[in-house]
Write a protein that binds this DNA or RNA. Structure first.
Lengths: 262, 262
DNA sequence: TTTGTTGTTCCAAATAGTGAAACTAGGTTT
DNA sequence: AAACCTAGTTTCACTATTTGGAACAACAAA
């Protein structure tokens, strides 16, 4: 849940508010925001006004509803392009997904969670949880575990502690100890598996994307369902997966690379 | 160029700065921002700090470079989903693009320009933010003209005046008069054509998406190249296009609908 | 009309933002 | 190695902005 504490003055408050509107997921009334808000009426009101005439929020004056604004979509386009691995990795994702014939995900670390930044699906549309901009848990997805495993001790420790450990399926790892052991295993194997830990029947194999100095830049996975592949069969993609991850890392290296967020 | 004047205090300044970083399009140094900034060093510095630890900017401490942050990508996902026609229109776009066998664009109006919010290309499957979030000119694209044509007199007048009228190709309309005449024509026909006005060899047919009260919600186009279709042949899609646009309008109606920005 | 919502405006007090200037850390020149 | 840049960070007194209680408007329900 942890979104931005109120440190950075007005800007912080404004952005927290944006998050709140985003979290609601639909246009929302002033009063609805007010009850959950810690701000007094007037303050909240002015905050909303500011955001609205900045285009970060949209306001439907007939229905008196606030929603996220188009300016965000524009900004995000730029963000996606310059601050994610996605544009760099694009051709390589295409290639990998084509070769494997399965869905490929590209993710980055964001406060211990996985932020999916791209996805490639060769035709057969499995319905599952993902799309660019979506976030997923770190402790029970292939990409999440792969990234966590290769962080340096200190960061890893911190992030492992702050996972929320909800038991999505019977296989979900729900303790710090279990996760740490798993991460150790992953470090040895070089790849991580999701053994239906997040969603029943969905399995994947994942690898971290590392910089030249072994900083974690992101993660890459091949996802499929148990009706089509077994975990053993998935392992056959290991070499291709690792190679692609390595290539993406190198490409990122030679370009620009904002390291992933703690 | 016109984004946000410095009215709304600190938040406004912070967001303007975000835009600036976005505009550069690559990671950027403090000093580089400083020379273009009207703020004194210290102010700019603190602004950047605030944005950075809010996750709106990323900071690479080794290279001392700022770039847009991942938080934007998350927010945008939500924005795209709740504040654009895209999620509603999705299945209809699929259908239309499949039927026509050509690329389909979905756009909304944003300060007189076209904000593309989705795209469907029958050959290569979409990736979300790669194209969503892009902006294009209003006066020389199919979608742009279709939307402008169906605005009410007053808004249309204002937006037509503030177009930038750059001559992209020999066919580009570069005067208020020419554009107004064209818009009149479009209103009569119900659809707009892009006759290689924005890019050589690229043509399209476009229709506005209207609400029940005839407010402009967005626009829809089928794009192709002159090597494959003539304008006359494109016109054959007119009925399908109009029907899809009508359906999207109705769907939007029955859900929520932030009207497009002036 | 009265009462109850919900959204908007006021204004004195408090807070947060400002920016000149001082400082620090690397690197370059003399 | 001392002097001198240049780029980035911190300080601090000053001031403009933000704050929020309370009053106000607009509208609906009783």
């Amino acid at each position: 849940m942890a979104t931005a504490k109120n440190n950075d003055g007005t800007v912080g408050k404004a952005l927290a508010l944006l998050d709140k509107v985003a979290a609601v997921g639909r246009p929302v009334r002033f009063s609805e925001l007010l009850v959950e808000s810690e701000h007094p009426k007037a303050t909240l009101y002015r905050l909303l006004q500011t955001l609205t005439n900045q285009g970060m929020l949209g306001y439907d004056s007939e229905r008196q509803m606030y929603s996220l604004g188009v300016r965000l979509v524009k900004l995000a386009h730029a963000a996606w392009q310059q601050s994610s691995l996605a544009p760099i990795a694009r051709p390589l994702l295409d290639q990998l997904s084509l070769k494997a014939g399965e869905t490929v995900h590209l993710g980055q670390l964001d406060h211990g969670q996985v932020l999916y930044v791209d996805k490639r699906n060769p035709a057969s549309p499995l319905t599952m949880f993902s799309d660019a901009g979506k976030i997923g848990p770190g402790y029970c997805t292939g990409i999440g575990k792969a990234m966590l495993a290769f962080l340096d001790q200190e960061k890893r420790q911190r992030l492992v502690q702050q996972q929320s450990y909800h038991r999505y399926t019977p296989s979900t790892l729900v303790s710090v100890e279990a996760l740490c052991a798993e991460l150790e295993e992953i470090r040895q194997q070089g790849v991580a598996f999701d053994r239906e830990e997040h969603e029943a029947n969905i399995i994947c194999i994942a690898a971290p994307i590392l910089s030249g100095t072994n900083k974690v830049l992101g993660g890459l996975s091949i996802t499929t369902s148990t009706t089509r592949y077994s975990l053993q069969q998935l392992e056959e993609f290991k070499q291709d997966l690792l190679e692609t991850a390595r290539n993406i890392g190198q490409l990122a290296e030679s370009w620009h690379f904002p390291e992933t967020n703690s």
